[in-house]
Amino acid sequence: MKPAAFDYVRPDRLEDAADLLAEDGVGTKIVSGAQSLGPMLNLRLVRPGRLLDVTAIPALRTVEDAGDAVVIGACITHADIEDGRVPDAWGGMLRQLASGIAYRAVRNRGTVGGSLCHADPAADWLSILTALGAEARLYSRRGRRTVALESFVLGAFETALAADEILEAVRIPKLSGRARWGYSKSCRKAGEFAHAIGVVVDDPETGRCRAVIGATETPPILVADARGLLSGDGTVQADWVLRLLGEAGMQDPFEQQIHLVALERAGAQARL
């Protein structure tokens, strides 16, 4: 249960980190809080030649108000959001949901950026931030680019990050005071990875009504315009959901049912 040997570098400038990645010849893996990577290293499932610690880069630990959105650095932790050290622009949604991720001891180190790059389909942020319409800001020596979160994750543990790219920040659109949201995750034990996730965000001010089914074995399933999916009383069009799940390759009736129920519960919360 001890990791294989690896080398370690800790640049304090984004440019240096990008250089180290671009000139990588040893198999470099970026690390921030190490709360997902650590277990995989200890189990020797992952054996990088070198860890590149990005937590000394001040830009990745900042939060910026961008008017209609908040841009949070990749190294912002779940606890930073839970405790309100990141200003709340979502009517308490992100604070409340952050408090349900894993355990407090994990939230004190685990980061939003790390969670997104790890791209475990069962992770909370992937589904939540996809529902909010967040964007990933990527940096490399070749320049910067922005990728919508629904395009950022390609599959289980697979992202659109090129080998020389770093996730710099996440731009999360704010919610208006009239926004309604619901979130439901199915877990057998508090703090474990979800078996099914449902998210609904409905903001009449911006006209955005989005639903996400998460914790599938694929990227989160996004319904970008969910107005037809949800009836006025919060019930969900089950046929529509089952068709989406079938298209994503989910055949098992039990799996289909728990994902449908998760979305129904999220829908009911959003309409209460």
Binding site: V9, R10, A56, L60, R61, G73, T77, N108
Partner: peptide, 18 residues
């Protein structure tokens, strides 16, 4: 006890390019 942003324990030391 926490006022800083980022992972607890990280971000105190400067660059270490090793």
């Amino acid at each position: 006890a926490r006022t800083r942003l980022g992972p607890a324990g990280s971000g105190h030391a400067g660059a270490s390019l090793g």
